[in-house]
Amino acid sequence: MINALSRRSMLLAASGGAAALTAGGIGNAQAQAGRPFTWAATGGTWGATLDRVFVEPFARANRLQVLHAAQLESIATSKLLASCGSAPFDVTNGPQSDADLLNDARCLDALDPGVVRSLGDVYPQALEGNFYAAFNILLFGMAWNTREAAQPTSFRDLALARYRGRVAIPAYGWYGMPWLHAFNKELGGDEDNITPGIQAVADIVRRNRAVIVENADHGSRLMESGEVVIMPYWNGRTARLQAARVPAAFELVPNTVSVGSGFSIPRGSPYARQAQELVQLTLDPARQLEFTRWSLYPPSNRSVILPPELEGIRIPPGALERTARLDWKKVNDHRSRYLERWNREVLNA
């Protein structure tokens, strides 16, 4: 009955509610932020596993409401650039290149070693400045069909005539951009001179009728169906193909691209402290091992001891040193121009 509510009882109810919210742990930050703790990451099984392994335990420990802003990493990056300093997300999951771009635009907070205590345990290749720490190692080398192709020694094997019509290359907007730079380095180019790489990739497309892989699932389907027998692809994804009894193997060829997947913290987040804690949780050995069991990507924390069944995905000693050294700053500087050349010269080849 509305008439039975007095001003006093309303005030009492409101203050009681506020007290309950605070005591219940929804907390000051949440009330001040006016929105739940928001984490941006791609959706699908990747996002669901990030949620299960990292975000849910973090939310429970911090008594936070969390919201998954599911979107492609590149879309989250462009949104963060467009709203630098008042980001719609509190952490964003992505590769080094995007984190580097955001950091250059002063859109990221530095990691606080006082909270992110495991930085020293992480492979140096999984770190980027003081603003990014990947929780696993993603290697973009060569995947090959063990029945129909020979063990590759280089990305140049994509041009071999015997693979005509059965090769694939990544789309520029997927991981084609870093792969192009890595392949270009093998051919004598560098970040400022992409011509050798572009010409070689155009040649592969023209002569060997390479399929353009739009995303990781697309790549897996091509390998499963046997439509493609050799292509640049992920170590973890290839391991999952093997687990599904697809005759596939991964080769860490020279200039394999080494990236990671990690969370970075946009500047101006109302949950700055909690975001640091989430990053620390992603570097926790037990959590990383759990994620690795699902993704089959090696953990970035060197102290993680892989169980016998995961021995096959261990990074061989010295392997990371053979991966391509990319200057992400320059790679980002040339994004637009090289995309145009890719579209014009590779896709029109």
Binding site: L101, Y172, S336, L347, N348
Partner: peptide, 20 residues
Amino acid sequence: GRGSRMIGNEIYDQLITALN
């Protein structure tokens, strides 16, 4: 296919991939 790109694809690529 790779030869059937339309202007919408170019806009998307420049906006999201190239950030131009």
